[in-house]
Design a protein around this nucleic acid. Structure first.
Lengths: 211, 211
DNA sequence: TGGAAAACTTGCTGGTTCGGAAAAAAACCG
DNA sequence: CGGTTTTTTTCCGAACCAGCAAGTTTTCCA
């Protein structure tokens, strides 16, 4: 149905994607500080003015690839079977949202950049905010709650978004030796069990990184 | 001990506070769009350049009052009795962090501004990020977990921060007729019980706002 | 198909923001 | 007091950003 995109729409999507791909690539290769909108535009063979028609800053372009998925994630959540546990639905929908496209080490490097640059971090966080807002609506539909009056849908949306953000942050430090899926699974599990205080066992219990 | 602040330090703190107070006041009175760093500086009788020595944008100044509390909150959490439930500690520490100083309707208006302005929202969210990072360390100390390797401390810090953010957001819409403390209490309670799906009762069950 | 209408790109441009450098003022210390 | 350190201020150039109108491409409709 939405497959019927006119030439104009397709070209717009193409230049947008080309711009944010170029922005990400250049940021990873040459760093964020020295990167300019002009440089990105040049890479895609459009004018600097056109770049600013699509993005209002280089930071917005760099994280656009990540944050643009907010729409799809909400749609995917809406598409899950209604008899599925909400936690299973969230797990099924959120994890793939960051596993598409980009190689793992690029994602780690990007998260490293984000951690260091205030403007990038700010842009990234508004992406999660966007995601949460959309998810809250779907969760409300699904659970028969009211986004305007009930705490539940907003809180669950925000909390599961946080599970993803926390997992990405911990995974990107590289100090755990675990996979993102593994960490995220544990995070959702902890949340759904009410964040019980972990047993004060030896904290090296997760097993050696093994290299 | 830190009471021994020289005149220099005191004046710096004073101008910083004066600047962010003025920024907030002007933003509430005259709106964010038309507000300029020059206007804020003028209000405090310093040069525009001095304003930029303290804050890198007007948005940073506007939300500085809220975000500067991150330090205290973490310190307060560290100061809670060790035999207290972590949830009780979080409740005791987080709620007062927004209840100090500003009148309630000003806080609601500020949150309204934040919701509408991308740059303000971004700045506000990095404030929560800052808060979470500090709290994660204290939570790790308190629970004998490892910030670098365990999911728990980061997730609990982020989740309780989210509980506050979600509560502020819902409260500021004014559609519930409930107090912030009430909403926040329910949010923490939901989190600590694993976000159970609410019974599909009539959603007007929370009682009439009563005017 | 042809031509009008709409949408996108682009160069230009004025206004704003930002932060470096050095002089001036204020605070500290003996 | 003089000398030293820190902060404030003035000056200023570079970067950023969005509005406008001209030129181009796509779409629409008869």
């Amino acid at each position: 149905m939405t497959d019927e995109l006119g030439l104009r729409e397709r070209k717009k999507l193409a230049t947008r994607r080309a711009l944010c791909d170029a922005a990400l690539k250049l940021a990873l290769d040459e760093g964020v500080a020295t990167l300019t909108p002009e440089r990105i535009a040049e890479e895609v063979h459009v004018s600097p003015r056109t770049f600013r028609n699509y993005f209002s800053s280089k930071e917005e372009a760099i994280v656009a690839g990540l944050r643009d998925r907010a729409h799809e994630v909400a749609d995917n959540l809406r598409g899950r079977p209604v008899d599925e546990s909400i936690w299973d639905s969230l797990r099924a929908v959120l994890l793939p949202s960051v596993e598409t496209g980009m190689p793992g080490h690029d994602l780690m490097n990007l998260l490293g950049l984000i951690r260091c640059h205030h403007a990038l971090l700010a842009e990234h966080l508004t992406g999660f905010e966007d995601l949460s807002r959309r998810m809250a609506e779907v969760i409300a539909e699904r659970t028969g709650t009211d986004v305007q009056r009930d705490v539940y849908p907003r809180l669950l949306a925000d909390a599961s978004g946080i599970a993803l953000k926390t997992s990405l942050g911990l995974w990107a430090t590289g100090t755990t030796g675990r996979s993102l899926a593994d960490i995220f699974g544990e995070a959702l599990d902890l949340l759904s069990r009410g964040l019980p205080i972990p047993a004060p066992a030896h904290s090296a219990d997760t097993g050696p990184p093994l290299g």
